[in-house]
Amino acid sequence: MSADLSIAMRAETRPRNLIATLWASRAKYLVGALLIVICVVMLLPLVASVLASLKSTTEAAAVPPTYYPHGLSVDSYVRLWDYQAGLQVYVGNSLATAAIAIALTLGLTVTAGYALARFPLPGKEALFVFLLLALIIPYQALLTPIFLMFAQLKLTNSVLGLAIIHTAIQLPFSLYVMRNSFEAVPKDLEEAAVVDGANSLQALVLIYLPSVVPAMVTVALFAFITSWNEFLGALVMMNRQDTFTLPLILSAARTQTSIGGTDWGMLQAGVTISVIPCIAVYLLLQKYYVAGLLSGAVK
């Protein structure tokens, strides 16, 4: 923006001919070109991964590698599809876990965010900080205690148990965003409603929720990303092939060949499959959640 303005200012002092105009706009074109280059650089790794997943088995293991597949093949996807219990089982488990994690995260942080932003809680700051506890602890070290507790509660091998872990990981960020979003809602709106006789729950549902939908989308999206990709917790909690999630299979592709070598094609097919839903959801909900992130993080 500032670059454009400076050009405009300087342009006035110059004689108006074509070359000069181009010259004067050089910064604009340079910036445009630079942006395109940046976009290409950001997209290339993903494109390369998708292309690699479409190579034949031999081409995927070729040294030196090829830039793009010389002949399309879905071999890698077939291997991934047929892997152990079958890809659909793992994707199903991952989706179920993510869905519960999203529901839990939203349920907990919408109410807590409302309370923290709108009610005179005793020791509010301390409470908030306490709820953010998970932020500073390496959760890797908490997994074993949680696992032993879940074994007693019969929550191991279940998507609910795993979803609880994912919710615990995701809670601090989500709560932060939700609280800030509730704080950003103008107070007079609610006051008017309360004067009209609405109770606090009605105020939450009727007044606040419509305003914090973007933040909820943000929270849901990030909960999805966390849950869909989380590896170590799933490894600890799940004991049977038919309860495994996608990230466990992704890691298995690294030691897939008979004596533990990497199946490069299957690995990139796995990366592609795990990346696609994230990007799809992001692009679909972009409008909401950019706003949500902004209202939640930048006050």
Partner: peptide, 23 residues
């Protein structure tokens, strides 16, 4: 409010579709 409902529905559908596991 529409979104959580959607999620609940999706959740229920997924739970039903889940494999029952080994005998």
């Amino acid at each position: 409010m529409r979104l959580p409902k959607l999620i609940t529905v999706a959740l229920a559908a997924l739970l039903v579709a889940m494999p029952l596991g080994a005998v």
